[in-house]
């Protein structure tokens, strides 16, 4: 057993935690926008799988990473369109249709993978982009400025999402659609139009989250490779209290504890592995129960909107 709390190990944990949080950020921040407008989309994991496959396939065939990212965005948006038609226009029960969308994405991505690729392959994904000067800083540099491009993009989405929600007219309409759709409607806001936009946007982000895995962090595609990551992303929206920086905190807490337990195992700390892998989940639940102040969810969440009299 070696020294655990050395600078090198702590830097390693922080670095890992930041990287691990990236896919959650894309997916959660997108899901948050949808929920703020009143639509709960539980299909995130399936959309991520479709995005992961689309990005991987395009990169596998063309080698163009940005084209791959675009493909994930488009495929995610299409999945979102499907979700919007089912849950907004047709007013289907959101929880059920989300699970349906998840199974659809899981099955379709597996089928496409089998027919179009067939075996597990790897691609050269986004490589690490060391930010000049900043990455030279002691401690701070290796933790924050030595990541893949997709990781920077994920963190950029935090202030962007905050700005969108709190400082734009669209953000105001989104929140109105989720809090009081009748009032929003009487003021001339197209509630269902706004919900279409948010669900499609959120799903496109979930597609990017999948791409962040398949062409950013892992550079492989495997059936069901998200392994339920999308559901954690939905939970993080609640954890973060529907606020971008709350979600950032939740994602970082979960990921950093995960990184911590990996390091603890690698360095041979005498903790049973079964206990170690539970740690991120247990701590997140504890934090959720005690530390996070109660935030009310959007009043019209999961409620389809129909124009009354």
């Amino acid at each position: 057993m070696k020294e655990f709390f050395t600078v090198a190990v702590l830097v390693g944990i922080a670095h890992s935690g930041i990287r691990l949080a990236a896919p959650y950020l894309f997916a959660s921040l997108g899901e948050m926008v949808g929920q703020l407008s009143g639509v709960l989309n539980l299909g995130v994991d399936g959309i991520m799988l479709m995005g992961a496959f689309a990005a991987f396939y395009v990169v596998f065939m063309t080698g163009n990473l940005w084209l791959g990212l675009l493909a994930a965005l488009i495929v995610g948006a299409l999945m979102g369109l499907l979700m919007a038609v089912i849950s907004v226009t047709m007013g289907a029960e959101q929880g059920i249709s989300g699970i349906g969308l998840y199974l659809f994405g899981l099955g379709l991505s597996s089928l496409l993978f089998k027919t179009m690729i067939g075996s597990v392959e790897s691609v050269s994904g986004f490589s690490t982009l060391r930010i000049p000067v900043l990455s030279e800083l002691p401690i701070i540099g290796p933790i924050f400025f030595d990541h893949s491009v997709v990781v920077y993009l994920a963190y950029l989405m935090v202030p962007v999402s905050w700005y969108l929600i709190n400082r734009t007219t669209l953000g105001l309409k989104i929140r109105a659609a989720g809090q009081n759709p009748e009032a929003a409607d009487s003021l001339g806001v197209s509630v269902n139009g706004v919900r279409y936009i948010t669900v499609i946007y959120g799903s496109a982000m979930a597609g990017i989250a999948g791409a962040a895995l398949s062409i950013g962090l892992l550079n492989v595609f495997q059936e069901n490779m998200t392994n339920g990551l999308g559901f954690i992303a939905v939970a993080l929206v609640y954890f973060g209290g529907w606020r971008p920086f709350g979600i950032l905190g939740g994602a970082l807490l979960f990921s950093t504890v995960n990184a911590l337990q990996l390091w603890a195992q690698v360095l041979g700390l005498p903790i049973p592995s079964d206990l170690a892998v539970m740690l991120p989940y247990v701590l997140t639940i504890i934090a959720l129960a005690f530390a996070v102040r109660q935030v009310r969810q959007p009043a019209a969440l999961t409620k389809p909107f129909e124009r009354g009299e």
Binding site: S16, R19, L20, P23, L213, L217, L218, V220, Q222, N224, M225, T226, N227, L229, N258, A259, L262, Q265, V266, G268, S273, D274, A276, V277, M278
Partner: peptide
């Protein structure tokens, strides 16, 4: 030696 606690957690295995 580290364990991920799962057979299919590709992302955690990568980390």
């Amino acid at each position: 030696i580290s364990y991920t606690g799962s057979f299919g957690d590709t992302a955690l295995a990568a980390e």
